[in-house]
Simulated scan of single mutants.
Amino acid sequence: MKFYSDVILLCDRPEERLYAGDIGTVVEQHHVEGLETGYNVEFFDPLGNIVAVATLPGSYLRFN
Rank of each mutant, 00 (worst) to 15 (best):
M1I: 08
K2H: 14
K2P: 10
F3I: 10
F3S: 02
F3Q: 05
Y4G: 00
Y4L: 08
Y4A: 03
D6S: 13
D6A: 11
V7N: 00
V7G: 01
I8Q: 11
I8V: 15
L9D: 07
L9Y: 09
L9I: 07
L10N: 10
L10I: 06
L10M: 10
C11V: 13
C11H: 14
C11P: 00
R13I: 15
P14A: 10
P14S: 10
E15I: 07
E15Y: 11
E16V: 09
R17A: 13
R17N: 15
R17H: 13
R17P: 01
L18Y: 07
L18C: 06
Y19F: 14
Y19M: 02
Y19S: 02
Y19D: 00
A20K: 14
G21F: 04
G21V: 04
D22Y: 09
D22M: 11
D22S: 07
D22T: 03
I23F: 01
I23M: 09
I23H: 06
G24Y: 07
G24N: 06
G24T: 09
T25Q: 13
V27F: 07
V27W: 04
V27Y: 06
E28S: 14
Q29S: 13
H31T: 14
H31C: 10
E33Q: 12
G34F: 08
L35T: 12
L35F: 14
G38H: 12
Y39R: 02
N40G: 02
N40Y: 09
N40S: 12
N40L: 08
E42M: 09
E42L: 12
E42A: 07
E42G: 01
F43N: 00
F44W: 04
P46K: 07
P46D: 11
L47N: 13
L47K: 12
L47Q: 14
G48Q: 02
G48Y: 00
N49C: 08
N49D: 09
N49Y: 08
N49E: 11
I50N: 01
I50T: 05
I50C: 03
V51H: 04
V51F: 04
V51G: 03
V53L: 04
V53H: 01
A54Y: 03
A54L: 03
A54I: 02
T55L: 15
G58V: 02
Y60W: 14
L61H: 05
L61C: 06
L61D: 06
L61A: 03
R62F: 05
R62S: 06
F63G: 06
F63L: 12
F63W: 14
N64C: 12
N64F: 15
